[in-house]
C-alpha cells in the first residue's frame, strides 16, 4: 500500500505542482492517475521513487515513511517505465533489462537468463536480446522498458504515459498486454496517463486530477462513469461519452449467435456473444472495458 498524506510539491521556480494531495493506493491493484498535461501527474509518480522529494507531507510505502529510505536503494526496488522507454542506447536489449538486477548484485549469467525469460513475459522474441534499442520499433522499445521495470521483481511498478508515443494500434496491443501482465503478476501498479479511455481500460481505481493534482474524483471506472461528481469530471470523461456508449445494432443482423454493437456514430464497435438471442453476461469487466476502448478508437478513426 502506498499512502500520500497532505503532500505538496513546490518547484524552486515557484510552480506549485502538487497541492495538499492525499491518497491511498491499494496493493496489487492498478491505480491510474489521469488528468490533462501539467496537472502534476508525473510529479506525483516521481515522488514515489524519490526522483522528486515533496516540499511537505509524508509518503509511506507499507507504513514506512519513504523519506527515511535511501533514494538509490528505493529506486532499485520500484519498477519505473517511462514514455520514451529511457533505454540506454549503448547497451543491448538484454543488458538493458538486466541493468537493475546487476546493480543489485545478481550474477551476470543469472541476470541474463532472467532477462530472457522476461522478454517472453512481455511478448518479445528472444532473438531481439542482442539488438540495440535503436534497432527496435517504438512499441518493442516500450516492451523492453516494461521488462526492465519488472526485472528486479518489484512489488510496485510506476508507469508514466508508457504508451503515449506509440501509434494507436500498437498502443491497444500494449494496453491489452498490460492487463494480461497485471492478471499474471499481481503488482501494485501506478499508471499515469492523460487518456481517459486508457485510464478506464486499465484502472481498478481511477483518480481524475485537476491542476495542482487536486482530486476531482476517484473511484472505479464504473462508479465514475455512472456518477460523475462535478461538471469538470463530466466534461473530462464526457466529451466523447456518447461515442463510448454502445447499443445493439438494429440494422446489422446478428451473425449466428453474435450481436453487432455500434457506437453513437453508427460505427460497428464489435460483436458480443448472444447465444439464442440472449446477451452473455459472464465475465463483464475486462471484456466490456476493452470494447469501450475499441469504440473510441473507431470513433477517432
Amino acid at each position: 500500500m502506498i499512502e500520500f498524506r497532505s503532500v505538496s510539491k513546490q518547484y524552486p521556480d515557484g510552480t506549485r505542482a502538487v497541492d495538499e494531495f492525499s491518497l491511498i493506493i491499494p496493493s496489487r491493484k492498478t491505480t491510474v492517475l489521469v488528468g490533462s498535461s501539467g496537472c502534476g501527474k508525473t510529479t506525483l509518480l516521481r515522488m514515489i521513487n524519490r526522483m522528486v522529494d515533496p516540499t511537505s507531507g509524508v509518503i509511506e510505502i507499507d507504513g514506512k515513511d519513504i523519506s527515511t529510505i535511501e533514494p538509490v536503494h528505493l529506486r532499485r526496488d520500484v519498477g519505473y517505465v517511462m514514455q520514451n522507454s529511457g533505454l540506454l542506447p549503448h547497451r543491448r536489449v538484454i543488458d538493458n533489462v538486466a541493468t537493475v538486477p546487476i546493480l543489485k548484485g545478481v550474477p551476470k549469467k543469472q541476470a541474463h537468463e532472467d532477462a530472457l525469460a522476461l522478454l517472453d513475459t512481455v511478448g518479445l522474441d528472444r532473438s531481439l536480446a542482442d539488438r540495440y534499442p535503436a534497432q527496435l520499433s517504438g512499441g518493442q522499445q516500450q516492451r523492453v522498458g516494461v521488462a526492465r521495470g519488472l526485472a528486479a521483481n518489484p512489488n510496485i511498478l510506476l508507469m508514466d504515459e508508457p504508451f503515449g508515443a506509440v501509434d494507436p494500434i500498437v498502443r491497444t496491443d500494449l494496453q491489452n498486454e498490460t492487463l494480461r501482465l497485471q492478471r499474471e503478476l499481481d503488482k501494485t501498479v501506478v499508471f499515469v496517463t492523460h487518456d481517459i479511455d486508457e485510464a478506464f481500460l486499465l484502472g481498478d481505481q481511477v483518480i481524475i486530477l485537476e491542476k495542482g493534482a487536486h482530486i476531482a474524483q476517484q473511484g472505479s471506472p464504473e462508479e465514475i462513469l455512472a456518477n460523475p461528481v462535478s461538471e469538470f469530471v463530466a466534461n473530462f470523461i464526457g466529451a466523447d461519452r456518447g461515442k463510448r456508449r454502445l447499443a445493439v445494432s438494429s440494422i446489422a443482423h446478428p451473425q449466428g449467435d453474435d450481436l453487432v454493437l455500434v457506437d453513437a456514430g453508427g460505427y460497428a464497435a464489435g460483436v458480443i456473444a448472444a447465444p439464442g438471442g440472449q446477451l452473455a453476461t459472464a465475465n463483464p469487466t475486462p471484456k466490456s472495458r476493452s470494447i469501450s476502448n475499441k469504440t473510441s478508437q473507431a470513433g477517432d478513426a
Binding site: 526522483m51 538509490v72 528505493l74 519505473y80
Partner: peptide, 15 residues
C-alpha cells in the same frame, strides 16, 4: 547525452 537517458538511469537506481 540525452537528459532523458540520464534521468532514466537515475530512476532505475544508478548512483
Amino acid at each position: 547525452v540525452d537528459r532523458r537517458t540520464i534521468d532514466a538511469a537515475r530512476a532505475v537506481g544508478m548512483t
